[in-house]
Structures are given as C-alpha cells and as structure tokens.
Nucleic acid binder design. Structure first.
Lengths: 254, 254
DNA sequence: CGTGACCTTGATGACGCTCAAGTGCGGTGG
DNA sequence: CCACCGCACTTGAGCGTCATCAAGGTCACG
C-alpha cells in the first residue's frame, strides 16, 4: 500500500472540484483572449498585438540588455531577478497577468524576466510608446499610473522583508499571492503557488529549507492546506485574518 | 584625568580639519542658496519658491494625509517611515538634499517625512505641477526621471535587506551614505551619519543593539573610524572596495 | 526503471533579538 | 557653575530562529 503523500489533505473530505477561472488566470496555455485587454486603458497600446508565448524557464529579457520593448503579461507568471556581484540570485519580484514590465526603466533592463509557467505576453517598442505619449497626452497618465504600480510592487517587497520572522513573511507572501485570485482568501478556495521554493526563498531573503519548514508548520497549525507543493488553500479565513492583523506575536494560534 | 571617549580616534593623528562643503550639504542651517537649483532641470519648478525651514524632529507631512504638495529638499536630512498595523515603525527611506518627495503618490502621502536634522525645503502644489505638465511637455520628462529615481531608491533598500548578514547590510548602508558626499569613500574624508541608530535599525530590518555592535566590530576591524556616533570615516579605501565587492565571505579582513 | 529536479526533513551551530545594565552628553534648574 | 536628569548610544548575557550541511522522498520524463 502506497503511503499517503505529504500533501494529501486527509482531514478535508471534499476538495473544491472546480475552480472556475481563478486558477486559469495563472496559466498561460489557453489560447482565447486571456485578459480583457480592451476594457483596460492599456488596451489601445497592447490590444492589437498578437500575444506571443514564452516557454517555461525561458527568459523574456535579460538584465543589462538594452531595453527595447515594454511587455504586458497576458497569462502565466514570471520571476524577476538580478545577479548580485557575488553571483547570488536576487529575486526582485514576480509578474502576473495584467502586469506591465519595465515601463520605468531608462535604457537597459534592470532585471531578468524568466517564465515560471508557460507565459503569454504582448509587447510594444519603447519608441512606439514615446510616439504615443507625444501624440496623445492621455497616454502619459496611463504610464504614470503604471509606474506608480511598479513602485508599489517594490514597496510591497520591502515591507515583506521588514517582517521580523520567517513565518510572518511567508504568511504575508501567501496572502499576497492568494489575493491575485479574487475571493480565494475569503472563501478558502484553492489557488496556485507556481514558483519554486527557491524563488520564494530568494524573494523573502530566506533559504529554501526555511520556506519548506515554515510552510510545514503552517500546515500543522491548520492555517493552510496543501495539495502538492503548488496548490494552497486557506481553510479558515477567520484564522488568517487574525494572523495577518495581529502581527508578530509568534506562536499563537497553534 | 578624563578617560578617553570611545569615539576619540586615538590612532589617527591629524583628522581632517576642514570639510569643505561636504558636511554642509547635510546641514539645513545655512542661509545662502544651498543647492544650485537653477542648474538642474527642476529649477524652473522649485527655483522661485523661498525655502522654508523644518525644525529637527518636526514632520513635513504625515502618512495618510491628502497629498497637496511636492517637496524638494534643499538642505538637511529627513527620515521617511510608515506605521505598520502592529504599531511598529517601518523606515522606508531617507531624503537628502536634491531629492524630491512624493512625486509618485496619487492622492495621499504613503509615509511620514520627519526632519532628522534642521531641514530646508521648497514646495510646489500638485495642481501647479499638473498645469506645468499640461503646458510644457518637457516637464513630463522631468517627472518621469524623478519617478525613476524614487523607484531606484526603493530598489536600493530592497537589495540592502536581501543581504544576508547584518555586517553586510551596514557596510553597504554606510557606503551609500558616504556616496552622498562626493569623494568621501575614495579620500577617506569624514562624513555625517545624521540619523539615529534606531532609524538605521528600522531601515535595515535590524535592532538598534545589532547596529551598535556591528559598527563597533567594523571599528575594531579598522574599516571605519568614528568621531562621535555621527561622524564616520573610511580610513582605508582599498579595504572598503574589497569588502563591498567580495560580498558575504564574512570574517575576512579582520 | 533509472535519472535528475524539486521538495521535505533532520542535526548543528552561528547570528541576531531580547532583556538588562551602564556610559556619555546636552539641557535645565537650583 | 554644578548637580541632576533624560536621551541616545554602548556593551553584556542568554536564548531562539534561521542558515548550513546532509540525507531522504516524490514525481516527471526518457
């Protein structure tokens, strides 16, 4: 008899069978229009481009290369990282559907963007964007807003890194990912955690081992349920709220 | 006989007597034109405003307040911080002469700005800026560049926080401050470290005690010389370069 | 069915946090 | 002018958390 996998949710009798659309959002494989590009303001810029595919593990662009294009993620997830002077990988972010990459850079890409899952993107040349800005003043506003978003994203990581304990960082990280799927936290629905453990570790300034151990602890405490390493649920929304609000008082709710 | 202070540099016979202009830059008290505002592109925006003083410890604006103005720091240093949900202070940056604050925010300030030293600033209303952008397309470019700078600043903090050891974080932090005074690292000239130990700690995700202890260690290792808690020198530029480049191999060069 | 990539768990020790005491220094009031 | 006081800084002792090194476990794929 095959031993139970670590990830079998033996305590949970009926898992959600269908995850309508929520998980699809993080998957780059569907061919229909993944995002309603025409409804958001960037549609005019990216809408008429045919999305191109980026295979899992392939880079969309490299750190230091001349920045010729701006990209909109249509489907899939990318990891954004730099190489430190010592050769260590420094994760500076993740990109999700709807995100726009490198709108704020001047002439060279600041980081490498690599597909975590099969990914689909639209691109526009920086030249073209410059022309659009000159022609339509309204475009400048859109670009401003996107730059603000990019700023917020970096700020978000900073706040994560300023959490004292590994546990807090990881809980907040998981909540952040969960929020990409509307309602996932409130309903306890399953969501995808597509990136590798090492990606998470590099993003949070931890080691892979600490990420693993902490997630195991969270599982034991009943905060999360895992079905394989990359599918997570928050079975108890109230518990989550307590933890997230309460802050650092570590060891409670166990 | 009074015992030697911890900060007396007994090994160094002649300290630099005059620090021509370098330290002045971080001091908000002088009344002449502190920064050559007319030479940089923002001069047109801020140059005609009379700088106003912010006393040490006073706030320039508060987190959450409606963002009505944009500020240019003329002299002095400010700390930029938020309050976390648990009431902890989270330092998100420092502002130095030449920096422009809150150009990227939409409607409310994201953090509180408080004067570390007596500070002098110029302000311009956001409305006025919006008008300027509409009238002169070139202004938009300036604003873009400033937003890029703000983004880089946050990125810089992220990279600091991703350093593994406290020592590395502090060395890099000190180098960053030193670079505000042109040539300070190369020549080994003294520079000001105006912020409190707690400010540094909150910025680097450490405790005040660890900051103290680590700086003591750096002093013992000969990497830095202190004359009081807020005046630092790098007596050996070559040593500094090794440390900064070499990365984490901790314990060497001692 | 072997191989490799990824994930998980264990043992150990160092780094950094906590609590606590002590120092230096500027300001205020007697 | 000096004593006192408070704040910031410094140092110490003890301990918990997390990094490191190492060994399995699981799964996909050829």
């Amino acid at each position: 008899m095959k031993p139970l996998s670590l990830h079998d949710s033996v305590h949970v009798l009926d898992l959600p069978r269908a995850l309508p659309g929520a998980l699809l959002q993080l998957d780059g494989r569907q061919t229909a229009a993944d995002l309603p590009c025409e409804t958001d303001e960037l549609g005019a810029l990216f809408g008429y481009r045919i999305p191109e595919a980026v295979a899992r593990g392939k880079a969309l662009f490299w750190e230091g290369a001349p920045a010729e294009h701006i990209f909109q993620i249509v489907g899939g997830v990318l990891r954004l990282f730099r190489m430190s002077s010592e050769g260590r990988r420094v994760m500076v972010g993740f990109a999700f559907p709807g995100d726009v990459l490198s709108i704020a850079v001047k002439d060279h890409y600041l980081f490498t963007a690599e597909a975590v899952t099969p990914t689909r993107v639209r691109r526009i040349s920086r030249e073209r964007l410059a022309i659009q800005i000159a022609e339509q003043p309204k475009v400048a506003t859109i670009v401003f807003d996107r730059m603000r978003e990019e700023l917020c994203a970096v700020h978000h990581q900073t706040l994560l890194l300023l959490c004292q304990t590994a546990e807090m960082r990881i809980v907040r990280f998981l909540l952040w990912i969960a929020h990409k799927n509307p309602g996932a936290v409130e309903t306890g629905a399953e969501f995808a955690l597509p990136m590798l453990r090492t990606d998470i570790a590099d993003y949070l300034g931890l080691t892979m081992e600490t990420v693993c151990r902490t997630m195991t602890k969270l599982r034991r405490n009943g905060l999360i349920v895992m079905r394989g390493p990359h599918k997570i649920r928050f079975p108890n929304p109230r518990l989550v709220k307590d933890v997230a609000d309460l802050g650092d008082s570590r060891g409670e709710w166990l």
